[in-house]
């Protein structure tokens, strides 16, 4: 098992997906600078399965936002497939999110007025894919998570577990290289949570790297690498 904080030789390694090279994120709250993510190294390889644990406010979400290109590091570099993300323009960042990164959130974050099918279609729409192909791929993704019969249902008519499966289908329909999951089972019952984890792990088995934030030690235990975050600093949870 590789050391996730050792980024030596990452440029030459063929399985390197993402690298935080001394990357940190500081927020300005009035006159006070808040170091939400302390500058540090992290390497994520293709097919990695990383669980991040830590108390609220420890910087987990900030880490996820930086990895998901929703936020830029204020220190160091973030390299995704060799490209320095911190130097990309907004439209390039949007393209990275659109094509390379899948998101799954604790509260699902689905468009409430749209059907499950249209929710899953969304990233394909912004990828400029034709409508008929969008429909077909979205239907396949819903079928893969076992929700084909519920494709026309709006989120309000779906259970929590079903909504999270729609969110997962939306993340997977774009065939991402990196799947970021923020407490994906946090709002679900045990059975639904287990189903979601199976689907995520199945995708991981196909080579998609997974970074999952969780408070649940049992969920974290299923990951190959477990990290602990505290005060914006990461460490090995099992060290």
């Amino acid at each position: 098992m590789h050391d996730p904080f050792d980024i030596t030789g990452h440029a030459e390694a063929t399985d390197t997906l993402a690298v935080l090279d001394g990357a940190g994120r500081t927020y300005q709250a009035g006159s006070v600078a808040v170091e939400a993510l302390r500058p540090q190294d992290l390497i994520i390889r293709r097919g990695d399965y990383i669980a991040v644990m830590g108390p609220s406010g420890s910087g987990k979400s900030t880490l996820l936002h930086v990895l998901g290109c929703l936020d830029r590091p204020t220190a160091g570099r973030y390299l995704l497939e060799g490209r320095d993300i911190s130097r990309l323009a907004d439209r390039e960042l949007a393209a990275v999110r659109n094509l390379q990164i899948g998101f799954v959130f604790q509260r699902f974050h689905l468009l409430r007025d749209e059907s499950a099918l249209r929710n899953v279609e969304l990233p394909l729409l912004y990828a400029g894919i034709a409508r008929s192909e969008r429909r077909q791929r979205a239907a396949e993704a819903l079928e893969a998570v076992g929700l084909a019969p519920r494709a026309r249902h709006e989120p309000g008519r779906l259970s929590g577990g079903e909504q999270q499966r729609v969110a997962l289908a939306r993340a997977l329909v774009k065939r991402p290289r990196l799947l970021l999951a923020d407490e994906p089972t946090g709002n679900l019952d045990t059975v639904s949570g287990a189903r979601i984890l199976e689907l995520i792990e199945a995708q991981n088995g196909h080579g998609t790297a997974v970074v999952m934030i969780t408070h649940d030690p049992e969920v974290a235990a299923r990951a190959a690498t477990r990290l602990l975050m505290r005060d914006g600093r990461m460490s090995r949870a099992d060290a």
């Binding site: 998901g68 929703l70 907004d90 439209r91 949007a94 393209a95 999110r97 659109n98 094509l99 998101f103 974050h109 689905l110 468009l111 969304l122 990233p123 912004y126 990828a127 939306r170 774009k174």
Partner: peptide, 12 residues
């Protein structure tokens, strides 16, 4: 925010 997460550009 969801649209932006899923790849919408500012201009979109």
């Amino acid at each position: 925010a969801i649209r932006r997460c899923e790849g919408a550009r500012r201009r979109d």
